[in-house]
Design a protein around this nucleic acid. Structure first.
Lengths: 210, 210
DNA sequence: AGACAAATAACATATTCATGTGAAGCCGAA
DNA sequence: TTCGGCTTCACATGAATATGTTATTTGTCT
């Protein structure tokens, strides 16, 4: 028997979902409140449900803030967002905060039930459209690599040494070359990147600008 | 009519999928090869398909390398991975390289067909289990912020100066303090962070470890 | 064969950094 | 009020870095 809690401020929707889930053989849904604050209070004094359905737009604390708080105190609770928002930002924030699934409110009751079963089965319930937005976050981070800054592989080695916090001497040792060679490479790197200090090279590298 | 291409080195599986998809009313699957190299050659001289099903383990170039190459030359082609690998690393690499979906090989033919339809519909086909692994990548990146390293706001100012690539002198100018004060702060920062060079401070800061 | 980029190396010098030591003023906690 | 942490500043010194100049070797492209 899966225990389910609901945080949703629209009473009609809340009651509808609660009644539907509670009548399922394998599910129990006794807790349905309209704010994160109430849910936190409830969790203090009662057994913790396995799954929470949570809205984002709520009176008081937002659902996304709620995820963080609840996950911090009760990491074992799985949270599915159930919301009208389908913008990447909200989706992303929810997942980073710790949500395990993301459904839109037009999801039908049987689909919500299936989603909970998917979740208990180790999956992450979300529509393909949501999934598409999620994976777009993986592709995007490719802003502008300085095309002028084509470092040779040896130069890239040296940069890695700098990023690792090594001195010229240690870089020379690492690659078994003389310290003057390291100097020579670094000179060339500075020219290509238009910088003139270790610090700037490290910063550029860690920002992915090389 | 959706044109579909297949890159898969197992002849049986390849033929099976090709025949099944090609007999669909809305789909056409004329191109089925067993390596990325062959597919690239084919794309040179023919119309580009809308969707590619691609294996990861292939003779010659791997499917993941293939995604990057194909996406670079033909960004409009949508790629669905079809593989036995379900480890986060392969999934992650595929999505970063530009894949739009990720299916495991036990996926049934009708499910593959549905996945292609999902893709054309703007979704990202993947099983809930795969989706779960994808979103886990969002939660994790929060390793360990050194709790011992509570920098004061002034110290954080100095760190920001370093990250911006400034010399002590320029940091002193920025905050209108003497260079010796900058030195003093940096001494304290080094102690708190257990480092002993600008480079390490910048690296830690940009890695989010401060 | 000649041009050219890349990797290697040496020598020199001015600047910047890392670190030691010491100290004054301010402010909040004990 | 005494103590400790934060911010400010000074003087000093050895280590590391930034930059200039020059040169050999190797491999690639034409």
């Amino acid at each position: 028997m899966i225990e389910i809690g609901i945080v949703e401020d629209n009473v009609k929707i809340r009651n509808l979902i609660q009644r539907y889930l509670d009548m399922q053989e394998t599910m129990s849904c006794k807790v349905a409140v309209d704010s994160v604050e109430e849910m936190l209070e409830h969790l203090e004094n009662n057994s913790t449900p396995g799954v929470l359905l949570m809205d984002i737009q709520l009176p008081g604390m937002s659902g996304i803030e709620g995820i963080e708080l609840i996950k911090k105190k009760y990491p074992e609770i799985e949270i599915i967002m159930l919301t009208i928002y389908h913008d990447s930002h909200k989706i992303f924030d929810s997942l980073v905060a710790g949500a395990s699934g993301y459904l839109l409110k037009h999801t039908s009751l049987p689909e919500i039930k299936e989603s909970i079963e998917t979740l208990m089965d180790g999956g992450a319930p979300m529509s393909p459209q949501i999934a598409r937005k999620v994976i777009q976050h993986f592709n995007k981070p490719e802003p502008q690599k300085n095309p002028e800054s084509n470092l040779t592989s040896r130069e890239q080695d040296i940069v890695n040494g700098l990023v690792d916090g090594l001195s010229y001497k240690l870089i020379a040792d690492r690659f078994d070359i003389s310290i003057d060679t390291v100097r020579a490479h670094i000179r060339n790197i500075y020219k290509k990147l238009h910088v003139n200090s270790k610090a700037e090279v490290i910063a550029k590298s860690l920002r992915g600008e090389i």
